[in-house]
């Protein structure tokens, strides 16, 4: 499973999974954009480069989703694929290529607009040979 949505009365809560932290972060980004738009309708026409660093993976994961919302809003663009590489040597570093296109109101139909990524119940659970990596997110919508 890439991701699943959990019941939350006022906001949106999901868990994203992956066999690696990279895959988990990619699936979390997909989950987040799937709240707003059918990502199948988004063409990977442009590439945005994202570079981030943080002292731990959890902080990096928060920065990652927040950065994507910033790009969505500031670039007036939507995304449907994410190519992520991570490294860590004391701090965690991310280089990501974000694929998508500028919003085209004729083709893109939006549902709930996400305001922000909250830290409420925000969690990154490391995976091992028995279970995948998992992160849990509550979005303010």
């Amino acid at each position: 499973m890439q991701y699943e949505f959990l019941e939350h009365t006022a906001d949106v809560k999901f868990r994203a999974y992956g066999s690696s932290p990279e895959e988990m972060l990619r699936n979390a980004a997909l989950a987040m954009f799937s709240v707003m738009i059918d990502t199948e309708t988004v063409r990977p026409e442009r590439i945005w480069e994202v570079e981030l660093e943080a002292e731990d993976l959890e902080s990096l994961a928060y920065k990652w989703l927040s950065e994507l919302l910033f790009l969505f809003s500031a670039e007036v663009a939507v995304f449907s694929d994410f190519d992520i590489s991570l490294s860590h040597d004391g701090v965690w570093r991310m280089n990501a290529r974000v694929l998508g296109e500028n919003i085209d109101r004729k083709r893109h139909s939006f549902e709930t607009e996400i305001k922000a990524v909250t830290l409420h119940q925000f969690e990154v659970r490391p995976g091992d040979s028995d279970r995948p990596w998992m992160m849990q997110v509550v979005l303010d919508v």
Partner: peptide, 30 residues
């Protein structure tokens, strides 16, 4: 609008670190 959302996001990151700095015990990171 986005101005407020981004301002909160930016400062939340700073304050999440401040919690450790000032030794505040929180039941919820938000």
């Amino acid at each position: 609008r986005g101005a407020g959302h981004q301002i909160c996001t930016d400062h939340l990151e700073v304050l999440a670190r401040a919690v450790k700095k000032y030794n505040i015990d929180l039941p919820d990171k938000q």
